[in-house]
């Protein structure tokens, strides 16, 4: 059965994030009510994804290398997007990501006090990426680069849980139709199944956020429809967890969100017992 390989330090899997850093990302996010730009949305999404992935793999002795992680930026340039000590590296063990954020900010979070109330708690929030908006949107080139990186990974880790690629973009590629390049990624596979390609569409449209749809009918524009078609269906095991978390899913449900949060995908990953009362 596909998508059943154990993810462990001896048999790690791979996460590859593609982040759109093109000039159009300076446009407002949603209808601009929040005063935020799409580039802010991208930076927020990638920082939260990395934060959640590191926390997922963290144990008391440190971060266990269940995953190797890459971030490819595309805009004025296409290539590895980490800065600082990780600059220029394509795939990095998740422990190094955890130990080397660009900086750590203090934020206040409201948390349950266990007695029915909320209390303010100061938490440390790591930042790896700041907003960037510059140049065109060479999405085809970025997908091609991702394919080359994954081919290398899969040659070395043929029995791994299939790598997951998350592309965060406003969907407006400037170097052609990205469908074929996306197909080529989804056709790559390990012994345990095909690579999963998920897309996060951040748009300037004022439209209701959409999470994990099972049809393109109802998506607000042709870019959203294209990204939906480029996205992999959620494998059965992910659908089952998504369902337990309250998402409405069917066999057609795809790894696609529109102006919404995709951090839930990290909760869908299975590295061992996860309590149902931990949300």
């Amino acid at each position: 059965m596909p998508y059943t390989a154990e993810i462990s330090r001896a048999n790690p899997s791979c996460f590859l994030f593609l982040i759109d850093q093109s000039g159009s990302m300076a446009d407002p996010f949603g209808a601009g009510e929040s005063g935020r730009r799409k580039a802010d949305g991208v930076a927020d999404a990638i920082n939260r994804l990395l934060q959640n992935l590191v926390i997922k793999c963290a144990k008391e002795e440190g971060v266990r290398d269940y995953y190797h992680v890459g971030v490819i930026g595309y805009g004025a340039h296409v290539g590895p997007a980490f800065s600082g000590a990780l600059a220029g590296r394509e795939l990095v063990p998740v422990s190094e990501i955890g130990n080397m954020p660009a900086r750590i900010e203090e934020r206040i979070k409201k948390v349950d006090d266990g007695a029915g109330g909320l209390v303010d708690q100061s938490i440390r929030f790591p930042i790896w990426f700041d907003p960037v908006a510059n140049g065109g949107t060479p999405m085809c080139q970025a997908l091609g680069r991702a394919k080359a990186i994954l081919e290398g990974w899969l040659a070395q880790h043929p029995a791994c849980f299939p790598p997951i690629v998350i592309n965060i973009t406003d969907g407006e590629a400037t170097d052609g139709d990205p469908s074929a390049a996306a197909d080529a990624i989804r056709k790559l596979s390990s012994n345990d199944g095909e690579v999963l390609l998920f897309n996060v569409h951040l748009s300037s449209q004022r439209a209701t956020p959409i999470e994990f749809p099972d049809t393109e009918a109802g998506l607000p524009d042709q870019f959203a429809q294209l990204l939906f078609r480029m996205s992999s269906p959620l494998p059965a095991y992910m659908r089952s967890i998504a369902q337990q978390e309250g998402y409405k899913v069917s066999e057609g449900t795809r790894g696609f969100v529109f102006n919404a949060d995709i951090v839930a995908v990290i909760r869908f990953l299975d590295i061992g017992t996860r309590p149902s009362n931990l949300r």
Binding site: D112, G114, D270, G272, T273, P275, N277
Partner: peptide, 15 residues
């Protein structure tokens, strides 16, 4: 399943 209800050290999860 891999998602049982478990006893937590955090009172917020044992309500």
């Amino acid at each position: 399943t891999n998602r049982p209800y478990l006893l937590s050290s955090n009172p917020a999860h044992t309500g």
